[in-house]
Amino acid sequence: MNLHDDPLLSVRGLCFRHARGPSGQWTLSDIDLDLHAGEVVAIVGESGSGKSTLLNALSGRIWPAAGRVDYRCADGRTVDIHTLPERERRRLARTEWGFVEQQAADGLRMNVSAGANVGERLMALGERRYASLRDQADDWLRRVELDPARIDDSPREFSGGMRQRLQIARNLVTHPRLVLMDEPTSGLDVSVQARLLDLIRMLVARLKLSALIVTHDLGVARLLAHRTVVMQAGRIVEQGLTDRVLDDPRHPYTQLLVSSVVAP
């Protein structure tokens, strides 16, 4: 790891307010955050702390009232996500970025087959050979531990855990550099969660991905993240090395979060 490289993603002074929200109350306030190549950062905090809104602001799905998000592209250019032309932003979203939704149904195309879901990003990048698409879909179904015999099945026939694994395959097939995950394991059975977490852990390490993972589960942060960011009421109240944040929390809110769970 080069400790002096520029961050892949750099967030400065980000503020956001929901149009219908109570006046004077910010959903995101003065967010500063860096993510370097190969780093996995967890964003923790309770519901309503602004975690998912932050992810949406970082990916250009919503426009901040103030502040900026800079991304260092694969070709070396640094771009401001929110001033980038829509076409460019969409190209980034399906090549260099991945977004794993909390609800797999939001991140998948539910009316096409599992194989077509995995192949979509490849086709967007210009792959047209059917055999190659089929081979890569087959390979990725195996990698996320789905039975390749189900390549032609609709994700509607899949369980929640299988859908989530399919969504991960669909995102990683083009080897993105940055993956944003919004509560990827919530809503799944505990045993299914463990399998998915282990899979994410392995893929992130093998592919040297950078990832931002929003979670309310401190165990997920402990298992996956190098660094952890704690959010409360739209602000970052503490951030640092994951084990330090969890084992030696400084901020009253972090101490409350850590003391509220059984052995995070």
């Binding site: 790891m1 400790l3 370097h36 780093e39 282990d198 402990r222 298992l223 090395l241 330090r244």
Partner: peptide, 23 residues
């Protein structure tokens, strides 16, 4: 944090009584 991770990777090891098992 990034330096500490790098130091742990190559320069320092910590062995406690407890193993934090990865599933």
């Amino acid at each position: 944090p990034r330096e500490i991770i790098e130091l742990r990777r190559r320069e320092m090891a910590y062995v406690s009584q407890f193993l934090r098992a990865v599933p």
